[in-house]
Nucleic acid binder design. Sequence first.
DNA 1: CTGGGGACGGGGCCC
DNA 2: CGGGCCCCGTCCCCA
Length: 318
Amino acid sequence: MMSRTTSHIVEDETMAESDNRKSFLISNLLSADTSLETEDDEEENMSVNDISMEEKIQNDSKLHRAFPKPTSTSTIFPRLMSTNDFSYLYYLSYQYFAMQMLKTGQIPAPVVTTKSPSSSTSTINSSSSCSSSSPSPNTATTTAATTITSPATPSSIANSRYQCDGCSKSYSTFGGLSKHKQFHCIAQIKKQFQCKFCEKTYNSLGALKMHIRTHTLPCKCKICGKAFSRPWLLQGHVRTHTGEKPFQCEICCRAFADRSNLRAHMQTHSDVKKYRCTKCSKTFSRMSLLNKHMENCLQQTTTSSNTDNCTSTAGFSI
DNA sequence: CTGGGGACGGGGCCC
DNA sequence: CGGGCCCCGTCCCCA
């Protein structure tokens, strides 16, 4: 809930009055928010819509009565940092603040950072601020907590942009940046699924969890204690103890404990192997055999000043 | 050196 | 979302 002591907007009001004001703001601005929706969906073309939005805010007398102008940056920033559960007001206040910066030429603080997720009651919901269809403050998402890098020089104020620290794309509104980071920025999305044990990143949580198993090795053999990342790997290992070979060659009836090894074995029954050297057309049942062959083939071609065939193609074909 | 088997790793897909 | 499975691949060893 909003703190009475930290809010400059509702410090003299009851919470009921605050809710009424919130509803008033939202209902009066949803019409103007059409441009914001367009902006969020069309990330690269936002400047025109932003100007339209700013003009609407600036010229809306109802808005000014409900949301009085701050008098200086010293009164703006504490409110921005503490208005934690009313993201729509936060968005509007920041828009208003940006306009004042444009007008006065004042230099804003270098960095304005939202509260960290550790303080759950003070997390600013930036995602709902850019979603006009659901302005509820209860839809806060920690992924939308972002760092806002403000322009550093007075000359750049005129081109006030919010830059993504993941891919360096810039946006003219905080809402546009928030939505970009939450849904579109590959760098930001990948950051969410980065392995804590190594540098690998994944597009999904499931893939990351699967990878993490290669570090934690949760499957241990009861016989020898060796650990594996997946149960079926352990299952295959246990076969080395039991001697079980469930995969049988249909041609020679030889049995294997591993399906991949049976597949490799099946290559031995084929006249034309799967992996072929593009230099001499010799075929091999395994990639490793082809690689070994190509090393020798490369040496031969090196001596004959033809070094490009086997290595450049480095290929295999069926 | 070559060919083949054994053991294992890891990403992706499906249920 | 997690487990099972498939597929591709690598490394090592041996005949």
